[in-house]
């Protein structure tokens, strides 16, 4: 009911005669900025239906002649489906691993008293200063020594420990009254049972939010997989896109194919975003506090 009445009033405001100049200006500005932001995506969608010649004709911004055949080419000829599966597997492992580990870390930080607790937390936060790209050389060396080169372990392992997720869970746990855990102590409820039956159900929104952020972050990994994975069939989709670029037609990059690949690569994180946008927004709101 509420939404209906708002949309009715919005409608009423948009009726001619009711619009004053200032509002028109504001709305015009908003429309233009949304259009500008959406433009690359729109162009990618259009180009993904065009052949190479059409793409190079700058003025040609209609639906191209290829229809969906660029998508078929990408998925068939270029083995893009395999890259997608690899990416999904990698991202899911990272999400599950990161959330699990961070939950345990935050549990330890919030509900246990141990010496130098604050220092430990600070040290965890300090790792934010050293993201994977900064540590890429020593990390490569480490992976090589462990014999993890060119394996799933190499592209997931380094991402499992996450200061951001630990921080978010810690802040959330700290907002839960201490008397809940004290009552659990009195009842003899163990830490794992408490985590599983109390903390996790009470943190569902936060867990979902962190999972979305982590999934998108993991999905977009490019540099590290490019370096550590030598086997093309084990590569992830972002690097797979790069392979598409290598395939040129008479010296011209086949942008139609690349755009089709980009659109495909966009779909899983988009789906995750659409499904989980509510908990994600809540998580971000907490972050702002």
């Amino acid at each position: 009911m509420a939404t209906r009445s708002t949309s009715e009033s919005t409608l009423a405001r948009l009726l001619p005669g009711d619009i004053d100049a200032e509002q028109a200006l504001v709305h015009g500005g908003l429309v233009v900025s949304i259009f500008l932001m959406g433009l690359p995506l729109l162009l990618a969608l259009i180009m993904s239906t065009q052949n190479t010649t059409e793409v190079y004709q700058i003025t040609n911004v209609g639906i191209g002649s290829q229809g969906l055949s660029n998508y078929e080419t990408v998925l068939g000829e270029y083995n893009f489906g395999q890259y997608m599966i690899n990416s999904v597997v990698m991202s899911v492992i990272i999400v599950v691993g990161k959330v699990t580990l961070s939950l345990f870390a935050a549990l330890a930080l919030v509900y246990y008293r141990f010496p130098y607790e604050r220092a430990v937390f600070m040290f965890i936060l300090l790792t934010l200063l050293l993201p994977v790209p900064v540590r890429i050389v020593p990390l490569f060396d480490l992976m090589a020594r462990l014999g993890w080169g060119n394996t799933l372990m190499a592209i997931t392992g380094p991402y499992i420990a996450s200061a951001t997720a630990v921080f978010l869970f810690r802040q959330h746990f700290m907002s839960i009254p201490a008397s809940l855990v004290e009552n659990a102590h009195l009842d003899g409820v163990g830490p794992l049972k408490f985590l599983w039956e109390v903390l996790i159900p009470m943190s569902r929104g936060m867990i979902a939010g962190v999972s979305v952020i982590t999934f998108i972050y993991a999905w977009n990994q490019y540099l590290w997989p490019l370096i550590i994975m030598s086997d093309q069939s084990k590569q992830v989709v972002q690097v797979g896109l790069r392979f598409l670029q290598a395939a040129s037609q008479s010296g011209l990059t086949r942008w139609g194919i690349i755009m089709a690949g980009a659109v495909i690569a966009l779909l899983p994180p988009l789906a995750v975003l659409i499904v989980m946008h509510r908990p994600l927004l809540k998580t971000l709101a907490i972050q702002q506090k």
Partner: peptide, 11 residues
């Protein structure tokens, strides 16, 4: 023990 804020599990 009964706490001032009741300490009930909300879920």
């Amino acid at each position: 023990m009964v706490f001032q804020n009741y300490a009930l599990y909300p879920h």
